[in-house]
């Protein structure tokens, strides 16, 4: 898989700092599964973190190495689902990664129709963000829309065009309130994307707005 479309490195810095909300973090994590370039950028951002945050005045903990070595067991559940356990780039398929996050196959998601050729399944919604999976049939023209905030879209399967740019599996489209776009799925295969958005999408025509209100996207 050759990934050519990457997020702004500001996203990777926020990821390395642990400042992203879950949905955006998931989309970035999934892109990293497929992208050696961004993985290396994250490593550098973490390296900067280590230099900045370990470089200050050290504290004097009471805890000793022996306390830790003698401790029986210990709860490391906080570690298991995290990206410290991230597999190396290219060792896990995007599909497998997302399935393991969802803990089910894509077919088991609560899909809803969202216009001709398009289905969406909302995975998360809170005051900060929404996360969903979009599934579009070949040749589907998605409603033209702008955004109230940031939107990261990762292609899991298939491909779509936005203007002259093609986004294929592993590619990440980094859009925000200044982006006005109309994705068109390529004609050979269906396209499945994972998307995180900060605010509701703003569709340019009235018909999708009704769908939007109905679906809450």
């Amino acid at each position: 898989m050759s990934v050519t479309r990457h997020p702004d490195s500001a996203w990777l810095i926020d990821y390395a700092c642990g400042n992203l909300s879950r949905g955006f973090e998931l989309v970035i994590s999934a892109h990293l599964m497929a992208c050696a370039v961004c993985t290396e950028e994250v490593r550098r951002a973490e390296q900067l973190g280590a230099e900045l945050l370990f470089g200050g005045q050290p504290a004097a903990p009471k805890l000793t190495a022996v306390d830790v070595l003698d401790a029986e067991g210990g709860d490391l559940s906080w570690l298991t689902a995290r990206f410290a356990l991230r597999p190396a780039v290219g060792t896990t398929s995007l599909q497998a990664f997302v399935d393991s996050y969802l803990d089910c196959g894509l077919s088991a998601l609560p899909w809803r129709k969202a216009g001709r050729g398009l289905q969406v399944a909302k995975l998360r919604a809170d005051e900060h963000e929404r996360l969903w999976v979009l599934r579009a049939a070949p040749n589907t023209v998605l409603p033209r829309h702008t955004h109230a905030g940031s939107e990261l879209t990762l292609v899991l399967k298939g491909a779509y065009f936005n203007g002259d740019t093609i986004y294929a599996a592993g590619d990440l489209e980094d859009a925000n309130e200044t982006t006005d776009h109309q994705p068109i799925v390529t004609r050979d295969a269906e396209c499945i994307c994972l998307a995180a958005t900060e605010g509701p999408l703003r569709f340019a025509s009235w018909a999708p707005r009704l769908v939007q209100r109905y679906l809450g996207i």
Binding site: A16, C17, G18, R22, R43, E46, Q47, G49, A50, E51, L53, F54, W78, L79, R82, F83, A84, A88
Partner: peptide, 22 residues
């Protein structure tokens, strides 16, 4: 090959903090 010890330990600490924050 993927990170130095200090970068790795930083990412562990950062992960623990994310967990607490959440």
């Amino acid at each position: 090959q993927r990170a130095s010890a200090r970068t790795w330990i930083f990412s562990l600490a950062r992960n623990r903090l994310i967990d607490i924050k959440r």
